[in-house]
Each structure stands twice: as C-alpha cells, then as structure tokens.
Design a protein around this nucleic acid. Structure first.
Length: 309
RNA sequence: GGACGGUUACCCAAGUGGACAACGGGGACUGACUGUAAAUCAGUUGGCAGAGGCCUUCGGAGGUUCGAAUCCUUCACCGUCCA
C-alpha cells in the first residue's frame, strides 16, 4: 500500500495487567510512534494509583494522548472519545508518526477500528431521569414495550431487562425524533490498520494482577480514595463503578475490612479480565496475538509491524 | 458413655413421601454491547442426546413404599450440651 496516502493505525489490545502500557512505549520508541490511550479510566486526572495509569515519568518517554484529559466532574463518553481519537490519529499521521492505539476498553477500540457511526445525541441526563421515572411508574417491561412500538429493531437487540440501554434508546428517539436503530452503523475502518494483542496464560495473568493490586495498596490507594472522598467525589466514583475505588470506598464507609476490600478488588479484576475477553477474543481473526511469556515477543511484534506498514 | 442437631451438586443453602436433576445465592463458563463500558444486561452450570427422552445423584449400607433427598434401621463423620 502507498504509505503516504492511507492513514496508518497500529492497535495494541489485551486484558488489564497484560503490560500494554509498557509494550506500547517500547513500540513507540522503536517505530517513532505516539500513543493514544483507549482506556476509559485513564481519561481522568483524579484517578491514578487504582487505575495503574502510566507514571508521569513514563508519560514523558514518548508522546501520550487521551490520558489526564478530563476530570470526574466532566466525564467523557464514547462519542467524545471517538471524535477526539479520530482527530488525533489524523494529526499523528500528518506528522509522519505512527499512531498506536493502546488500551483495554473494548468499546472504544471497536468504535475506532470498525468505524462506528453512533447516534449524535449526547447524554441528556434530565431526559434520562424522566424516562427512568416513567419506567418506575409503568414498569420497565412496559417501558421496553414502548420501545418496541417506536423502534422494533432496537427492542430486539436490547434485552428488556437492561434498563440502562432501554433508557438510552428511548432518550435518543425522543431527542432526535428518529429511530435509535437507524442511527448506529459500522463499516470498514478508514485506516490501514494492524491489531496486535498480548496474550497471557490466565493463571499467570491473575498472579500479575494480584501482585499489582498489592502494590497499589502499598503505593497509597486508600489515601488516594480518601482524598477523592474529601473532595466530594464519592458519588461520582460510585456512579462510575471503578474497580479498586468502589471497594476501597466501601471499606472507608465501614462496610468491609481493608483485607476484604483488597480481596474484592482482586476478584472483580479477574471478572473484568474475562469480560474484556468478550471484546478481544482469542480466536478473533483480526487480532494478531503474541505470547507474553515469549522473551522475544517485542521483536516478533516489530517484525510483523514492519512487514505491514 | 448419653441427649439432641447436622451431612444436598464446585461453595453456601432451600427442600422433610409423588409436579425433584432438585428453589435461591455465590463462583465458574459462554455471550450481548453504538455517547456511564472497569458500566449495564443475558444464557448455561450432573452425564448423554438435535428434541421427545435416557442414565447417574442428595454422607455409606440396608429396609418400608406403587413411588424416597424426604420415613425406618444401622454405620461413619461434624457440632452443641450432659456425664
């Protein structure tokens, strides 16, 4: 392919704790790359220890994007993320650098690699609350039946028990006057892209994660959460449901011991790893998986990348 | 030594003669996902079969009954109390 014409995109995926951040830095150093984070929790300045965000030192090694770009008061959503990320990919290509999209938020990655067209309607919380209230009154089954009348297709792919998605679909329909299902599309990626993944044997990955969580506590996770609570972010943390923060918060509220909180974090992180695997499947033909236990993993990645770009 | 109470599937636990392969929860597995996504939600979870269905399970052994996880006898183990 004529390299100057098509915009390039290297994508690095893998479960939490797989070493994406570190690998992305190595790749960027070797390939004159810039990293675009695809991690929904790295966006927030206030979240640090519990998210295993790259350290300030690491962030200076190569250009990083979409880390610490907003605050908990002003949460980003898929639409904002997607728009900014597309723009960054373009800019980095224009600079003659290689954009490296690295992260574990499957939805964000797919929205870019599959060129999702998402409903233009930004979240409208008042409307959502109103719909939720309505649902409480008439019953959420009835709410879903209402959706089925307005947009049968959407009602088919949204489970009637999934309140959040039912409400969002209705929100979009009411605000735009158009069917939700007509406003979501996907197509071929506009990028010349290569997706690589870091694969670990589960047990080894779990061990790494456990060790990392112990290290988070040693590094002051409890203090970080306490500071957030003191700054009035308890509700925001609860609403977002961030692993590590939710559990410590429960401990700070006296609902469980510190040790229990730690165990819950370990367990919830494991569950999260498995749910991430729904987006990044071992048998996905689009993902080129590399074995993390191979000492030459990075060299193999570079061989493939250089062959493609 | 005696008196009660208990032993149910990976774990906890309901079930005390028939609708029981056995409620529920946890865990695990699989999946969905289009502006909260580290969110939200679903299916499966004794074995075999595409289904009807068939086979093996409720601590062990034996018995009663047309029929037992459920009743009886006995053995084993655990718990509390009395010696």
């Amino acid at each position: 392919m004529n390299g100057s014409a098509a915009r390039k995109l290297l994508v690095l995926v893998g479960p939490t704790g797989s070493g994406k951040s570190e690998t992305a830095i190595r790749l960027a150093q070797a390939l004159d790359g810039e990293i675009i984070s695809a991690d929904s929790r790295y966006l927030y300045r206030e979240l640090n220890i519990g998210t295993a965000k790259p350290t300030p030192d690491e962030l200076t090694l190569v250009p990083h994007h979409l880390i610490n770009v907003t605050t908990l008061d002003n949460p980003w959503s898929l639409g904002v993320y997607q728009k900014v990320a597309h723009h960054l990919i373009q800019q980095i290509n224009l600079r003659g650098h290689l954009p490296i999209l690295a992260g574990g938020t499957g939805q964000y990655v797919r929205a870019l690699t599959e060129q999702w067209e998402i409903p233009a309607q930004a979240p409208e919380h008042q409307l959502r609350d109103a719909i939720a209230l309505w649902g409480q009154r008439i019953g959420f089954d009835a709410l879903h039946q209402r959706l089925a009348r307005l947009d049968p297709e959407a009602a088919q792919f949204i489970d009637y028990r999934n309140k959040r998605r039912t409400i969002r679909a209705l929100e979009v329909i009411f605000s735009t006057g158009q069917r939700f299902s007509d406003q979501r599309k996907k197509s071929i990626s506009p990028y010349q892209q290569l997706i690589i993944g870091i694969a670990w044997p589960r047990e080894l990955l779990y061990e790494r994660i456990d060790a990392r969580i112990d290290a988070m506590f040693a590094a002051g996770l409890v203090e970080e959460v306490q500071e957030l609570v003191d700054s009035g972010y308890a509700e925001a943390l609860k609403r977002m449901g961030i692993i590590g923060y939710s559990e410590v918060l429960q401990h700070l509220e006296g609902k469980c011991s510190l040790e229990e909180a730690k165990e819950m974090i370990k367990h919830n992180t494991r569950v999260f790893v498995r749910r991430q695997a729904n987006w990044f499947k071992a048998n996905d033909p689009k993902i080129h998986w590399f074995n993390a236990t191979d000492p030459a993993m990075l060299a193999h990645m570079l061989d493939l990348i250089k062959a493609v770009f």
